[in-house]
Design a protein around this nucleic acid. Structure first.
Lengths: 148, 148
DNA sequence: ATGACAAGTTAGCCACGGCTAATATAATGA
DNA sequence: TCATTATATTAGCCGTGGCTAACTTGTCAT
Protein backbone atom coordinates (compact mmCIF):
# COMPACT_ATOMS: atom_id res chain seq x y z
CA UNK A 1 0.00 0.00 0.00
CA UNK A 2 2.37 2.70 -1.15
CA UNK A 3 -0.25 4.76 -2.89
CA UNK A 4 -0.23 8.40 -2.01
CA UNK A 5 -3.15 9.33 -4.18
CA UNK A 6 -6.64 8.74 -2.82
CA UNK A 7 -9.02 7.37 -5.41
CA UNK A 8 -12.13 8.34 -3.51
CA UNK A 9 -14.49 11.01 -4.68
CA UNK A 10 -14.33 13.13 -1.52
CA UNK A 11 -11.25 15.30 -1.80
CA UNK A 12 -9.17 15.27 1.38
CA UNK A 13 -6.85 18.17 2.05
CA UNK A 14 -3.37 17.62 0.66
CA UNK A 15 -0.83 16.39 3.15
CA UNK A 16 1.41 19.43 3.01
CA UNK A 17 -1.56 21.75 3.52
CA UNK A 18 -2.42 19.89 6.66
CA UNK A 19 1.17 20.00 7.76
CA UNK A 20 1.06 23.75 7.34
CA UNK A 21 -1.93 24.01 9.65
CA UNK A 22 -0.24 22.00 12.35
CA UNK A 23 2.88 24.04 11.93
CA UNK A 24 0.82 27.14 12.56
CA UNK A 25 -0.67 25.60 15.67
CA UNK A 26 2.75 24.71 17.05
CA UNK A 27 3.90 28.21 16.22
CA UNK A 28 0.93 29.62 18.12
CA UNK A 29 1.77 27.45 21.09
CA UNK A 30 5.24 28.84 21.28
CA UNK A 31 3.90 32.38 21.52
CA UNK A 32 0.93 31.55 23.65
CA UNK A 33 2.61 31.46 27.01
CA UNK A 34 4.58 34.60 26.33
CA UNK A 35 1.40 36.42 25.37
CA UNK A 36 -0.44 35.26 28.44
CA UNK A 37 2.36 36.43 30.69
CA UNK A 38 2.78 39.77 29.00
CA UNK A 39 -0.95 40.35 29.07
CA UNK A 40 -1.14 39.49 32.74
CA UNK A 41 1.85 41.65 33.60
CA UNK A 42 0.25 44.61 31.88
CA UNK A 43 -2.91 44.11 33.89
CA UNK A 44 -1.06 43.80 37.16
CA UNK A 45 0.89 46.96 36.46
CA UNK A 46 -2.30 48.79 35.57
CA UNK A 47 -3.90 47.55 38.74
CA UNK A 48 -1.11 47.67 41.30
CA UNK A 49 1.60 49.71 39.67
CA UNK A 50 3.89 46.70 39.53
CA UNK A 51 3.90 43.02 38.65
CA UNK A 52 5.36 40.72 41.27
CA UNK A 53 6.25 37.13 40.45
CA UNK A 54 4.17 35.88 43.37
CA UNK A 55 1.06 37.52 41.90
CA UNK A 56 1.81 36.25 38.45
CA UNK A 57 2.22 32.77 39.87
CA UNK A 58 -1.13 32.92 41.68
CA UNK A 59 -2.97 34.03 38.58
CA UNK A 60 -1.24 31.68 36.19
CA UNK A 61 -1.81 28.81 38.57
CA UNK A 62 1.85 27.77 38.72
CA UNK A 63 4.65 27.93 41.27
CA UNK A 64 7.07 30.86 41.58
CA UNK A 65 10.07 28.95 40.21
CA UNK A 66 8.11 28.27 37.05
CA UNK A 67 7.36 31.97 36.78
CA UNK A 68 11.04 32.76 37.22
CA UNK A 69 11.99 30.46 34.38
CA UNK A 70 9.43 31.87 32.01
CA UNK A 71 10.35 35.44 32.92
CA UNK A 72 13.94 34.66 32.09
CA UNK A 73 12.90 33.55 28.67
CA UNK A 74 10.76 36.64 28.18
CA UNK A 75 13.66 38.82 29.25
CA UNK A 76 15.94 36.99 26.84
CA UNK A 77 13.37 37.66 24.12
CA UNK A 78 13.21 41.35 24.99
CA UNK A 79 9.61 41.45 26.13
CA UNK A 80 10.27 42.07 29.79
CA UNK A 81 12.76 44.04 31.88
CA UNK A 82 13.73 43.18 35.41
CA UNK A 83 16.29 43.41 38.16
CA UNK A 84 16.94 40.59 40.58
CA UNK A 85 14.48 40.35 43.44
CA UNK A 86 12.44 43.20 42.02
CA UNK A 87 9.17 43.52 40.18
CA UNK A 88 8.78 42.89 36.49
CA UNK A 89 8.17 45.52 33.84
CA UNK A 90 7.43 45.46 30.16
CA UNK A 91 9.76 46.69 27.46
CA UNK A 92 8.15 48.81 24.75
CA UNK A 93 7.84 45.68 22.62
CA UNK A 94 6.30 43.85 25.53
CA UNK A 95 3.83 46.64 26.09
CA UNK A 96 2.86 46.67 22.44
CA UNK A 97 2.32 42.94 22.47
CA UNK A 98 0.29 43.19 25.65
CA UNK A 99 -1.95 45.81 24.16
CA UNK A 100 -2.59 43.72 21.09
CA UNK A 101 -3.35 40.68 23.23
CA UNK A 102 -5.73 42.57 25.46
CA UNK A 103 -7.61 43.89 22.48
CA UNK A 104 -7.84 40.47 20.91
CA UNK A 105 -8.93 38.92 24.18
CA UNK A 106 -11.65 41.50 24.57
CA UNK A 107 -12.95 40.88 21.08
CA UNK A 108 -13.12 37.15 21.57
CA UNK A 109 -14.93 37.50 24.88
CA UNK A 110 -17.44 39.99 23.51
CA UNK A 111 -18.03 37.73 20.55
CA UNK A 112 -18.72 34.70 22.69
CA UNK A 113 -21.03 36.62 24.96
CA UNK A 114 -22.88 38.01 21.98
CA UNK A 115 -23.25 34.47 20.73
CA UNK A 116 -25.08 33.66 23.93
CA UNK A 117 -22.38 32.33 26.22
CA UNK A 118 -22.29 33.30 29.88
CA UNK A 119 -19.48 35.74 30.64
CA UNK A 120 -17.81 33.27 32.96
CA UNK A 121 -17.39 30.52 30.39
CA UNK A 122 -16.65 33.13 27.76
CA UNK A 123 -13.60 34.24 29.73
CA UNK A 124 -12.41 30.70 30.10
CA UNK A 125 -12.86 29.70 26.49
CA UNK A 126 -11.37 32.96 25.28
CA UNK A 127 -8.19 32.16 27.16
CA UNK A 128 -7.71 29.12 24.99
CA UNK A 129 -9.18 30.37 21.74
CA UNK A 130 -7.61 33.79 21.42
CA UNK A 131 -4.21 32.48 20.39
CA UNK A 132 -5.57 30.47 17.51
CA UNK A 133 -7.70 33.04 15.77
CA UNK A 134 -6.43 34.45 12.49
CA UNK A 135 -6.73 38.15 11.69
CA UNK A 136 -9.48 37.41 9.25
CA UNK A 137 -11.48 35.47 11.78
CA UNK A 138 -10.91 38.13 14.40
CA UNK A 139 -12.40 40.67 12.04
CA UNK A 140 -15.48 38.52 11.66
CA UNK A 141 -15.69 38.15 15.42
CA UNK A 142 -15.48 41.90 15.90
CA UNK A 143 -18.14 42.59 13.31
CA UNK A 144 -20.46 40.05 14.84
CA UNK A 145 -19.87 41.31 18.36
CA UNK A 146 -20.49 44.88 17.32
CA UNK A 147 -24.01 44.19 16.28
CA UNK A 148 -24.07 42.24 13.05
CA UNK B 1 -2.84 53.08 31.46
CA UNK B 2 -6.39 52.97 30.22
CA UNK B 3 -9.01 50.72 31.67
CA UNK B 4 -9.66 47.43 29.99
CA UNK B 5 -13.38 47.52 30.62
CA UNK B 6 -15.79 50.40 30.18
CA UNK B 7 -16.39 50.47 33.90
CA UNK B 8 -13.42 51.74 35.86
CA UNK B 9 -14.34 50.20 39.20
CA UNK B 10 -15.31 46.83 37.76
CA UNK B 11 -13.76 43.97 39.71
CA UNK B 12 -10.95 42.14 38.00
CA UNK B 13 -11.38 38.38 37.94
CA UNK B 14 -10.11 36.76 41.11
CA UNK B 15 -6.67 35.24 40.92
CA UNK B 16 -7.77 31.67 41.50
CA UNK B 17 -10.45 31.93 38.84
CA UNK B 18 -7.84 32.99 36.37
CA UNK B 19 -5.57 30.20 37.51
CA UNK B 20 -8.38 27.79 36.82
CA UNK B 21 -8.69 29.04 33.24
CA UNK B 22 -5.00 28.59 32.60
CA UNK B 23 -5.12 25.18 34.17
CA UNK B 24 -7.84 24.26 31.72
CA UNK B 25 -5.76 25.54 28.84
CA UNK B 26 -2.75 23.50 29.92
CA UNK B 27 -4.98 20.50 30.32
CA UNK B 28 -6.30 21.04 26.80
CA UNK B 29 -2.76 21.22 25.49
CA UNK B 30 -1.89 17.90 26.97
CA UNK B 31 -4.75 16.23 25.11
CA UNK B 32 -4.44 18.25 21.98
CA UNK B 33 -1.67 16.34 20.29
CA UNK B 34 -3.24 13.00 21.15
CA UNK B 35 -6.52 14.13 19.65
CA UNK B 36 -4.90 15.39 16.49
CA UNK B 37 -3.07 12.11 15.99
CA UNK B 38 -6.08 9.96 16.70
CA UNK B 39 -8.22 12.05 14.41
CA UNK B 40 -5.66 11.82 11.63
CA UNK B 41 -5.20 8.09 12.09
CA UNK B 42 -8.93 7.57 11.79
CA UNK B 43 -8.97 9.53 8.57
CA UNK B 44 -6.06 7.64 7.10
CA UNK B 45 -7.64 4.32 7.94
CA UNK B 46 -10.91 5.43 6.37
CA UNK B 47 -9.04 6.53 3.29
CA UNK B 48 -6.35 3.92 2.81
CA UNK B 49 -7.36 1.10 5.13
CA UNK B 50 -4.32 1.69 7.29
CA UNK B 51 -2.31 4.46 8.91
CA UNK B 52 1.39 4.40 8.25
CA UNK B 53 3.82 6.48 10.30
CA UNK B 54 5.28 7.98 7.16
CA UNK B 55 1.87 9.33 6.13
CA UNK B 56 1.15 10.60 9.60
CA UNK B 57 4.49 12.37 9.61
CA UNK B 58 3.81 14.04 6.27
CA UNK B 59 0.41 15.33 7.41
CA UNK B 60 1.51 16.40 10.87
CA UNK B 61 4.51 18.15 9.40
CA UNK B 62 7.03 16.36 11.59
CA UNK B 63 9.71 13.70 11.10
CA UNK B 64 9.08 9.95 11.48
CA UNK B 65 11.03 9.63 14.74
CA UNK B 66 8.75 12.23 16.29
CA UNK B 67 5.75 10.26 15.15
CA UNK B 68 7.24 7.11 16.65
CA UNK B 69 7.63 8.80 20.03
CA UNK B 70 4.13 10.15 20.08
CA UNK B 71 2.67 6.83 18.95
CA UNK B 72 4.47 5.16 21.83
CA UNK B 73 2.80 7.50 24.23
CA UNK B 74 -0.60 6.94 22.61
CA UNK B 75 -0.07 3.20 22.83
CA UNK B 76 0.89 3.54 26.49
CA UNK B 77 -2.31 5.50 27.02
CA UNK B 78 -4.37 2.84 25.30
CA UNK B 79 -5.54 4.90 22.35
CA UNK B 80 -3.59 3.10 19.69
CA UNK B 81 -2.55 -0.47 18.93
CA UNK B 82 0.46 -1.45 16.93
CA UNK B 83 3.08 -4.06 16.17
CA UNK B 84 6.64 -3.11 15.37
CA UNK B 85 7.26 -2.09 11.79
CA UNK B 86 3.56 -2.30 11.01
CA UNK B 87 0.74 0.14 10.54
CA UNK B 88 -1.10 1.79 13.39
CA UNK B 89 -4.66 1.07 14.45
CA UNK B 90 -7.03 2.57 16.93
CA UNK B 91 -8.25 0.85 20.06
CA UNK B 92 -11.98 1.16 20.77
CA UNK B 93 -11.21 4.08 23.07
CA UNK B 94 -9.08 5.64 20.37
CA UNK B 95 -11.83 5.22 17.83
CA UNK B 96 -14.38 6.78 20.16
CA UNK B 97 -12.10 9.74 20.78
CA UNK B 98 -11.45 10.12 17.07
CA UNK B 99 -15.15 10.16 16.34
CA UNK B 100 -15.75 12.86 18.91
CA UNK B 101 -12.88 14.92 17.57
CA UNK B 102 -14.04 14.64 13.99
CA UNK B 103 -17.51 15.74 14.99
CA UNK B 104 -16.19 18.70 16.92
CA UNK B 105 -13.84 19.64 14.12
CA UNK B 106 -16.68 19.57 11.63
CA UNK B 107 -18.85 21.77 13.79
CA UNK B 108 -16.14 24.36 14.25
CA UNK B 109 -15.38 24.46 10.54
CA UNK B 110 -19.02 24.77 9.56
CA UNK B 111 -19.47 27.50 12.14
CA UNK B 112 -16.55 29.52 10.85
CA UNK B 113 -17.66 29.15 7.27
CA UNK B 114 -21.16 30.21 8.23
CA UNK B 115 -19.64 33.25 9.89
CA UNK B 116 -18.20 34.19 6.53
CA UNK B 117 -14.72 32.72 6.61
CA UNK B 118 -13.26 31.06 3.55
CA UNK B 119 -13.11 27.25 3.91
CA UNK B 120 -9.35 27.28 3.66
CA UNK B 121 -8.76 29.56 6.62
CA UNK B 122 -11.64 27.91 8.44
CA UNK B 123 -9.80 24.61 8.33
CA UNK B 124 -6.63 26.17 9.61
CA UNK B 125 -8.23 28.09 12.44
CA UNK B 126 -10.38 25.12 13.42
CA UNK B 127 -7.26 23.07 13.93
CA UNK B 128 -6.20 25.41 16.69
CA UNK B 129 -9.59 26.37 18.09
CA UNK B 130 -11.31 23.01 18.33
CA UNK B 131 -9.38 21.91 21.38
CA UNK B 132 -10.33 24.96 23.40
CA UNK B 133 -14.05 25.05 22.92
CA UNK B 134 -16.25 24.05 25.85
CA UNK B 135 -19.33 21.89 25.35
CA UNK B 136 -21.53 24.87 25.90
CA UNK B 137 -19.74 26.92 23.28
CA UNK B 138 -19.77 24.02 20.88
CA UNK B 139 -23.53 23.86 21.22
CA UNK B 140 -23.78 27.51 20.34
CA UNK B 141 -21.51 26.96 17.36
CA UNK B 142 -23.68 24.10 16.17
CA UNK B 143 -26.87 26.05 16.52
CA UNK B 144 -25.44 29.00 14.66
CA UNK B 145 -24.03 26.82 11.91
CA UNK B 146 -27.25 24.87 11.48
CA UNK B 147 -29.60 27.68 10.82
CA UNK B 148 -30.40 30.85 12.64
C1' DA C 1 16.58 -15.29 -4.08
C1' DT C 2 18.71 -11.38 -3.38
C1' DG C 3 19.98 -6.57 -3.47
C1' DA C 4 18.44 -1.98 -3.36
C1' DC C 5 15.38 1.22 -1.61
C1' DA C 6 11.61 2.60 1.42
C1' DA C 7 9.92 2.63 5.90
C1' DG C 8 10.29 2.14 10.88
C1' DT C 9 12.90 2.36 15.00
C1' DT C 10 16.51 3.54 18.37
C1' DA C 11 19.81 6.58 20.40
C1' DG C 12 20.90 10.80 21.74
C1' DC C 13 20.66 15.67 21.56
C1' DC C 14 17.91 20.09 22.70
C1' DA C 15 14.47 23.62 24.70
C1' DC C 16 10.51 24.06 27.24
C1' DG C 17 7.66 24.36 31.27
C1' DG C 18 6.01 21.89 35.11
C1' DC C 19 7.58 20.58 40.01
C1' DT C 20 10.21 20.43 45.02
C1' DA C 21 13.87 21.64 48.01
C1' DA C 22 17.22 24.67 49.32
C1' DT C 23 19.12 29.17 49.38
C1' DA C 24 19.31 34.29 49.07
C1' DT C 25 17.29 38.66 49.45
C1' DA C 26 13.68 42.02 50.84
C1' DA C 27 10.20 43.76 53.94
C1' DT C 28 8.10 44.06 58.24
C1' DG C 29 7.11 44.69 63.01
C1' DA C 30 8.35 44.15 68.00
C1' DT D 1 17.87 47.30 65.25
C1' DC D 2 17.30 42.70 64.12
C1' DA D 3 14.59 38.48 64.01
C1' DT D 4 10.96 36.71 61.54
C1' DT D 5 8.30 36.26 57.61
C1' DA D 6 7.44 36.85 52.78
C1' DT D 7 9.21 36.76 48.38
C1' DA D 8 12.62 35.58 44.72
C1' DT D 9 16.00 32.75 42.87
C1' DT D 10 18.82 28.68 42.01
C1' DA D 11 19.59 23.82 41.47
C1' DG D 12 18.01 19.82 39.93
C1' DC D 13 14.55 16.52 38.64
C1' DC D 14 10.87 14.95 35.10
C1' DG D 15 8.03 14.29 30.79
C1' DT D 16 7.13 16.05 26.25
C1' DG D 17 7.93 16.70 21.55
C1' DG D 18 10.99 18.59 18.24
C1' DC D 19 15.39 17.20 15.55
C1' DT D 20 19.54 14.28 13.14
C1' DA D 21 22.19 10.19 12.56
C1' DA D 22 22.56 5.47 12.57
C1' DC D 23 20.60 1.11 12.38
C1' DT D 24 16.90 -2.60 11.46
C1' DT D 25 13.21 -4.37 9.04
C1' DG D 26 10.09 -4.82 5.12
C1' DT D 27 9.05 -4.66 0.19
C1' DC D 28 9.71 -5.01 -4.48
C1' DA D 29 12.06 -5.86 -8.92
C1' DT D 30 15.15 -7.97 -11.19
Amino acid sequence: MTETTPNEDSEPRPAEMRAESFHAVREAHRNELAEDYVELIAELIAQFGEARPVDIAARMGVTPPTVAKVLNRLAREGLVARAKYRSVFLTPEGATLAEACLRRHEIVVRFLVRLGLDPETAEKDAEGIEHHVSERTLDLFRTFADGD
